[in-house]
Nucleic acid binder design. Sequence first.
DNA 1: TGATGGCCCTAGTCACCTTA
DNA 2: TAAGGTGACTAGGGCCATCA
Length: 231
Amino acid sequence: MSVTYSNDRVFAGAGPEPSTSVKEEDIFLDGNIDVQIRNIVCNYSLPMHIDLRQLASRSYNVFYDRGKGVLVMQKRSPQCYVKIFSSGKVNIIGCKSEVECKKAARQVARHIQVILERTDRTMKIRNYRVCNLLATCKLPFGIKIEELHRQYPAQTEYEPELMVGMIWKHENPKASLRIHTTGSITIAGASSEIHVQQVLEFIYPIVYEFRCATRSLANRAKKRKSEPQRR
DNA sequence: TGATGGCCCTAGTCACCTTA
DNA sequence: TAAGGTGACTAGGGCCATCA
């Protein structure tokens, strides 16, 4: 099994429609699992005090919240949202890849340097780290999450009355997975794309044991069966 | 009165359920 | 069928309660 990353929808209407039969499922299992990075949160600090009022007055697409002491910047390329604190701490939210995130971090640091006219010294990014990464993937089969929860009660949390998905807490690398009966999995709390891959490679053989026909696919199959033969 | 700890809010994203 | 609400995750900051 291998994992590929993309920001485009692959399963949404692309390729042959998966069937409920195990034979056809196996065709999907031989292929790659397409993982989409939906959101990355990173933070870093700049070794200086930032005058947020001055920065706000000289920048476009910014909102200065004086009460909270934070400047919110909306970036178009890469599309993300940046929170800048007067202490020099910067949070970047909404990037789709680690490369984009790093690029945005450099752009913001450069922007602050130019706006505040600190061109006399080099602006160094300190303590840069990705603190949260959110990814999703869609498996070609449904998952019996109730049975999975019964089998792994220590690692999972499942409250069907509160939340439709089951939570799987992964310790090393640290990540939290939400597994749905439809086969869609959301990974949150990972700190790199490598960690997401490791977690998926760990979880795949487990969920495969509890596979079933997805509800929508099962309904479709049921519908097809009940439809009168036209030929 | 100052220090400390805990809670809540903010943003982004998704899938899913409920309600209109 | 469309819209609204929920939960997960992160960090920093604000606010409030408690204690010395």
